[in-house]
């Protein structure tokens, strides 16, 4: 182990990790603590994924390489190995308490940007991957308000691997910081207020009235931005009967109160559907019979 030798970086004030995180396009990364990297347990399995493991470790930890470093054909190969190593360690680190904390600070300062969707009213987003395996897809941004993922606005993030953030982080983050997570229900602020006016979604509504509480203590504790866009032609709503009528309203819709969420069973069927939607009635009868076999809650 060459780790014992005194570490000296080219620019001694800047560690490799700080340097790496300050590169353009690397704004989403937080600095992984050295003791996390030095604990071999945290690196289990990674050595098979990273070529020139030892040299990459030395580079990331700013350790003087061994004398016989000549066997490495090119420094740039080690550099890309170091980047892969750091990225994969980063994926694991941001799931730890310290890592979540570091990302929370970045989140609150708006480093990750905000949701491009108009009616999420600037809700901050977090980086997320679509895969935990490197080399498949670039980093995306998850919005906790619309529960959807977006392409980062700047092309400089198109070189950043999504696996370096992983599939779990974004959601563990909002489970951990529930006060940052919008609740799954929403009621238009002024009862009877015209949903025509998008002004009703402005932040002022959250400051008014009693503090927001989600009865589900494990759920999001932030008041959601729940307005959903309604297309209009010359002021008239486009009818759903038109071929070009709305088909995706559901994607962004929230029920007015949390109890409505329980009206759908675990398979996504309405429990006890009656009156208004007679068309589905036969299906639902079958459904209810089936339901009896399932000891749901």
């Amino acid at each position: 182990m060459g780790r014992g030798s005194a570490s000296s970086t080219p620019t001694s004030t800047l560690t490799w990790i700080s340097w790496f995180c300050s590169l353009p396009g690397h704004e989403y990364f937080c600095e992984v603590t050295e003791d996390f990297i030095e604990d071999d347990f945290n690196l289990t399995g990674l050595n098979t994924m990273v070529p020139f493991w030892k040299e990459a470790m030395e580079m990331v930890l700013d350790v003087e390489p061994d004398e016989d470093a000549s066997k490495i054909p090119d420094v740039s190969i080690v550099e890309s190995s170091a980047e892969m190593l750091y990225g994969l360690v980063h994926q694991r680190f941001i799931l730890t308490r310290v890592g979540l904390q570091a990302m929370a600070e970045k989140y609150e300062s708006g480093v990750f940007g905000s949701c491009p969707r108009v009616y999420c009213v600037g809700c901050n987003v977090v980086p997320c991957g679509r895969s935990d395996v490197p080399g498949l897809d670039t980093v995306k941004l998850f919005c906790p308000n619309c529960n959807d993922i977006y392409v980062p606005p700047s092309s400089r993030f198109q070189g950043v691997d999504g696996a370096f953030f992983g599939t779990t982080f974004a959601h563990l983050f909002f489970q951990t910081y529930r006060e940052l997570s919008p609740a799954p229900f929403w009621k238009a602020p002024s009862a009877g207020g015209s949903p025509l006016s998008p002004r009703s979604t402005s932040g002022s509504s959250s400051s008014r009235g009693s503090p927001f509480v989600n009865p589900n203590p494990h759920g999001g504790q932030k008041r959601a931005a729940g307005y959903v866009y309604v297309p209009r032609i010359y002021g008239f709503k486009v009818s759903e009967r038109a071929k070009s009528g709305p088909r995706m309203h559901w994607l962004r819709l929230r029920p007015e109160n949390p109890s409505e969420l329980d009206m759908v069973d675990w398979r996504g069927r309405w429990i006890d559907e009656d009156d208004e939607y007679d068309d589905d009635e036969e299906d639902d009868d079958d459904d209810r019979q089936m339901e009896d076999f399932d000891p749901v809650i």
Binding site: H218, G220, R267, W270, Y277
Partner: peptide, 21 residues
């Protein structure tokens, strides 16, 4: 994720109801 999955099931049930209609 429990609460999100619940919301998504509800949203899809709303969708299915519209499709049925």
């Amino acid at each position: 994720v429990n609460e999100i999955a619940k919301l998504q099931r509800w949203q899809e049930a709303v969708r299915d109801r519209q499709v049925g209609r």
